[in-house]
Design a protein around this nucleic acid. Structure first.
Length: 823
RNA sequence: GCGAGAGUGGUGGAACGGCAGACACGCCAGACUUAGGAUCUGGUGCCUUUCGGCGUAAGGGUUCAAGUCCCUUCUCUCGCACCA
């Protein structure tokens, strides 16, 4: 018996598919909308390390699904491309002195070869690469649309700065206070930035999650990230306010002599015993008394020097300084001290809070530390009072109002509504909504990214480049090394930086920041629709033909990065009337991580990395594909096992060996026919629902049964070749062509099953006595419950179990079991 | 701390509330062979000589029946982390 010559077969079919453009997707109007599917993979960032075994996992899953859909009469769009701008290529360029474009394109070539070696059915004619001028022309074009809509603005603000990557980072790119990419501790740095107003879309980004078929944990992560809260803003008058009125109270809409705070618990207003401002709050210098000034200024300086990590994670014990000023509580006229502390964040709400230590644990900690008064204003259902003493513990639970004047006795929810009205009537506050989501820090002080297409003109200010002038291409530089000063390496090229203003023709300087890595991936799924179009990012008719994406498969690590950014851009394009739906990805599936054999995350340092090239070389692409799908459910993490791979490889070898047996004509035995139809049914259902592991298991069961036969009946073999084809496409093609089919099996019809042949005529019925299985017998399918009970009473061993006992209860489940309760 | 998910043989994993462990790996025994990563056949949750008993992280509950539903606890993974 010849071993399965996978190398020859895989090479042969990959060549055929390429030569014959087997998987080219065409906008054929004969396919109605419901017979079209857009199945998308998260495109890879082509690192120097080459493909990782994690990549083919999701790619195999979508490939099987696409092949299945095509065989079921769908027109399928299944493209692939490369996310090619970004820090790793640039860092590598700095280390080695080679141009990032050189390494990037070399990496892309390697990735493309590796991906192709696995036999995926991509339409390669639609390949896109985000670092190509023809591509990033449209990334820049979309940026200009954002700018024109007022959604891109410049700001000088303290940002997350990675001292190692020497660039600013978005909030989403900071994990545990460290750079998501290199792990260096992030520091605060104040520099000029481009920022995208994603917060303008916060509500829609939140609400529209409900319309998406996405994993609940991912939706929850986005909801938490957006972090909507509902409450009220309340204005407190500042007592004896006498400072100059020159302050820029930008954060607050209140007059200078008032302090506006945000709270989600306006029902605890009577319990406010002090106020806290963020150290950066604009009112701080004005209200601070001469006596406190030195202490306050020292504290502000100290806070400014701290990183966010130090202000949050590491410093749960509270610090703060009294300003010397007092505020007047609008509900009861109480005069309460105003403090500053870095536990209040300038970037959230109004940058100021009322502190209710009895009902907020942070305020409680602060009050305890600085010996500030604590007044209980919410009582639990069982509490009877009196409530005139300081409470023993902080409670954040809702309850009934106490110590709250005319509002006493109101439940929390009702109080919230009433007090908001009360405040509004008196002009002292109103209901308000806040989001944790911050605007998206969009510029990077680096070379290898899309140049931001604006100039700075002395006369006209910030002027966008005319759309006709795009792309604004990256110039050559002598050094890619980031300056670390907050300027990108582009700033060192005067002949590029110095330009003329498109508006007035006067001298102007180009923007030298570049876009973050996420920019290109925000809209790549749209470029696949029409990758060569020079006049638009994609022709509207092609957008209408394919969009939205029906299934998007990728890792969960992009939950609040790419997936949020992409939704934002898509909604902007939708508002501009440029796309047909307000969401890009209808269904999302996250594949689990493939761990090393030691159950640890694969990493070079652990030495547990598996290289897909080695696997393809030794066992073939089909074995790799089928093994990765057989490992377990797509969505969960699971460890790699080369022994397990060998098992799958043996399965494919056995299938190959079966194909070398003689073919038999004539009808199938009833048993084999039933197994065939059960197999078609299970593989069909499991493939459609992405439960590939159990589909493969069923094919193994089926092939094990065929292996018992000397010759293989054609009617049993031919459907099997079609079932296995999406999973092991090279083997599938070879089996199909050996059955003398000229056309690719990928264009064959998916086999159909007859439902009645998937049911057994005889069912094994289990007999339970007091919940334990004591016997089994066989009965025709559909036998009535009454008959089953009668049959069960006389079943083997049951008579003994029943003798001398009283049957208290008899339960029968058709085709399944009989259960007796006896005494 | 908060939120989410997950705990099933030696291993990866199956299992509409209805026979726990399909399928595969590994292991054991045997067959065969141009000793291979072979291949084929049979066996393989634990305890027990048998009858049978016990088993899905631990403990409780609902049910004729629980891996599956409910409550409590533990462990692991992921996300968030002073957002008022």
């Amino acid at each position: 018996m010849a071993k399965y010559p996978f190398k020859d077969i895989e090479k042969k079919w990959q060549q055929r598919w390429e030569d014959e453009h087997t998987f080219r997707a065409v906008e054929d109007e004969r396919f109605p909308k419901e017979k079209r599917r857009y199945v998308l993979d998260m495109f890879p960032y082509p690192s120097g390390a080459g493909l990782h075994v994690g990549h083919p996992e999701g790619y195999t899953a979508t490939d099987i699904y696409c092949r299945y859909l095509r065989m079921n009469g769908y027109n399928v769009l299944h493209p692939m491309g490369f996310d090619a701008f970004g820090l790793p290529a640039e860092n590598y360029a700095i280390q080695t002195g080679t141009h990032p474009a050189v390494t990037t394109y070399a990496n892309i070539d390697r990735f493309r070869t590796q991906i192709k070696s696995l036999g995926f059915s991509y339409d390669w004619s639609r390949e896109v690469t985000t670092c190509e001028p023809e591509y990033y022309k449209w990334t820049q074009w979309i940026f200009l649309q954002l700018f024109k809509k007022g959604l891109a603005y410049e700001a000088e603000m303290p940002i997350n700065w990675c001292p190692s990557c020497k660039t600013g980072l978005a909030n989403e790119e900071v994990k545990d206070g460290h750079c998501d990419r290199c792990g260096t501790k992030v520091v605060r740095k104040r520099i000029r930035q481009w920022v995208l107003r994603i917060t303008a879309y916060a509500e829609r980004l939140l609400a529209d999650l409900d319309t998406l078929d996405w994993p609940e944990p991912i939706k929850l992560m986005q909801r938490n990230w957006i972090g909507k809260s509902e409450g009220a803003t309340v204005r407190f008058a500042i007592a004896d306010f006498a400072a100059s009125a020159s302050a820029d109270a930008a954060k607050s809409s209140a007059p200078d002599d008032q302090l506006e705070i945000y709270t989600t618990r306006p029902d605890t207003l009577f319990g406010a015993t002090y106020m806290v401002l963020a150290p950066e709050h604009p009112l701080v210098p004005q209200i601070t008394t001469a006596k406190q000034r030195a202490a306050v200024e020292a504290y502000i300086e100290e806070a400014a020097a701290k990183s966010d990590l130090e202000r949050t994670d590491l410093a749960k014990d509270k610090t703060g300084v009294f300003t010397g000023a007092y505020a007047i509580n609008p509900v009861n006229g109480a005069r309460i001290p105003i403090w500053i502390s870095d536990y209040v964040l300038i970037s959230y709400g109004t940058g100021a809070i009322m502190a209710v230590p009895a009902h907020d644990s942070r305020d409680w900690d602060f009050a305890k530390k600085f010996n500030l008064p604590i007044i209980q204003v919410v009582a639990g259902p069982d509490e009877t009072g009196p409530f005139d003493r300081e409470p023993k513990a902080c409670t954040e639970a809702e309850g009934v109002a106490v110590n709250s004047g005319q509002f006493d006795g109101l439940p929390t929810a009702e109080f919230k509504a009433r007090i908001s009205e009360w405040l509004e009537e008196r002009g002292a506050g109103k209901t308000a909504v806040n989001y944790k989501l911050r605007d998206w820090l969009f510029s990077r002080q680096r070379y290898w990214g899309e140049p931001i297409p604006v100039v700075h003109c002395e006369k006209c200010g910030i002027v966008p480049l005319p759309e006709e002038s795009l792309p604004l291409t990256l110039p050559e530089v002598n050094s890619y090394t980031p300056t670390g000063t907050g300027e990108s390496p582009l700033a060192a090229i005067p002949e590029w930086v110095n330009t003329t203003c498109p508006h007035c023709g006067g001298p102007a300087k180009r923007e030298t920041n570049t876009m973050p890595q996420w920019a290109g991936s925000c809209w790549y799924y749209l470029r696949y629709l029409d990758p060569k179009n020079p006049a638009a990012f994609a022709d509207r008719s092609k957008i209408d033909y394919w969009m939205p994406v029906d299934l998007y498969v990728g890792g969960a690590e992009h939950a609040v990065l790419h997936l949020l950014y992409s939704r934002f851009w898509h909604k902007v394009l939708y508002d501009l009337g440029l796309v047909n739906t307000d969401e890009p990805f209808m269904r999302l599936v996250n594949q689990g991580m493939i761990l090393g054999e030691d159950n640890q995350k694969m990493s070079k340092s652990r030495g547990n990395v598996v290289n897909p090239d080695d696997i393809v070389e030794k066992y073939g692409a089909d074995a790799m594909r089928v093994y990765e799908m057989f490992m377990g459910p797509l969505e969960v993490s699971k460890p790699w096992s080369t022994a397990g791979l060998v098992g799958v490889s043996r399965f494919l070898e056995r299938v190959w060996a079966l194909s070398e047996r003689p073919i038999a004509e004539g009808p199938l035995s009833p048993e084999l026919e039933k197994l065939l139809h059960k197999t078609i049914k299970k593989v069909t259902n499991d493939t459609a629902t992405l439960n590939f592991n159990t589909a493969i298991s069923q094919m193994m069961i089926y092939s094990n049964e065929l292996a018992k036969l000397e010759s293989i009946p054609l009617a049993a073999w031919e459907p099997f070749a079609r079932l296995i084809a999406p999973y092991a496409p090279h083997l599938g093609e070879e089996l199909w062509s050996r059955l003398r089919h000229a056309d690719s099996v990928s264009r064959a019809d998916w086999p159909l099953y007859r439902e009645e042949l998937t049911h057994d005529e005889e069912k094994e019925i289990v007999v339970q006595i007091n919940g334990k299985v004591r016997s089994k017998f066989s009965a025709p399918a559909g036998t009535s419950k009454e008959t089953l009970i009668e049959m069960a009473k006389t079943a083997e061993k049951i008579t003994e179990w029943l003798s001398g006992k009283e049957i208290v209860k008899s339960i029968a489940v058709q085709d399944k079991l009989v259960s007796f309760v006896v005494r």
